[in-house]
């Protein structure tokens, strides 16, 4: 394993390792703090996110889960500490409360734009296949403004799938979806896990999602604790 390049940008260090395509970690947080206004939501957090694992992120509302994701995605800069990343920025896909869509573009045009921005392949056939996986192929040429909330969320998932990143940051991806769409979302998460992606997944139903996970991140009172699913007790992890 050799150090190939080290890039520092606004408190985030990206380390590109010559590991022959594999690395053990994707993110490392060192003494990271972040707050809004008076108090810190996250305080002096030290954390290492292992590669190729599925990690559930759980905690009460306002505990800092979404803030953690935004720090990992590079949207926010930590007020203290540093974040090391072992994956390039373009290999992180985020699916959250906002769909990041342009209503004035068609469904397909939205995907084409994001693929071009991330310098991924934007061939029509490939993107139509991705839309087919999320059940939106029939509306590929409709303006995104015509989509319902659930369909927009599925299009947001299609955006992430089209980018095919090494790391998925999923912030309550099943929120607002019908049962069929929730099952489709969980299936895609399982497929991502099978292809070796690292999945960080905020969920408010950990009992239901724990069988698909390797670790649980408990976020609360400014701190983060990671346990393997075997240590949390109740449900077995990794079983399908």
């Amino acid at each position: 394993m050799g150090l190939r390049a080290k890039v520092r940008s606004q408190g985030i260090v990206t380390i590109l390792m010559n590991t022959g395509g594999k690395q053990d970690l994707v993110f490392g947080l060192e003494d990271v703090s972040y707050g809004y206004g008076a108090g810190d939501v996250l305080r002096s957090v030290d954390l290492k996110i292992p590669a190729r694992k599925t990690i559930l992120v759980a905690g009460p509302n306002g505990s800092g889960k979404t803030t953690l994701f935004k720090l990992l995605a590079g949207v926010l800069t930590p007020s203290q500490g540093s974040i090391r990343r072992w994956v390039p920025r373009g290999e992180t896909g985020s699916l959250g409360h906002e769909t990041y869509l342009y209503p004035g573009l068609t469904v397909l045009e939205n995907l084409i734009f994001w693929c071009r921005l991330y310098q991924k392949k934007s061939a029509y056939d490939r993107l139509l296949e991705v839309l087919g996986r999320v059940g939106l192929k029939t509306v590929a040429y409709e303006p995104a403004a015509h989509l319902s909330r659930g369909m927009a969320q599925r299009l947001s998932l299609a955006r992430v799938l089209a980018l095919s990143p090494q790391v998925l940051l999923l912030d309550e991806p099943t929120a607002g979806l019908d049962v069929q769409s929730q099952d489709m979302m969980r299936k895609e998460i399982t497929l991502a896990r099978q292809r070796g992606a690292t999945v960080l997944w905020i969920t408010h139903s950990p009992e239901k999602d724990m069988p698909r996970a390797d670790y649980v991140l408990q976020v609360g009172q400014g701190k983060i604790c990671m346990k393997s699913c075997a240590q949390t007790g109740e449900l077995p992890c990794g079983s399908r």
Binding site: K70, A73, G74, V75, P88, R89, G90, T92, S94, E98, T99, Y100, L101, Y102, P103, G104, W114, L117, Y118, Q119, A152
Partner: peptide, 17 residues
Amino acid sequence: ALEDVHKAREALLMAPM
């Protein structure tokens, strides 16, 4: 304002550029 509708600004900040 085009980036404000669905917070596409966040996604632009995440993009590899």
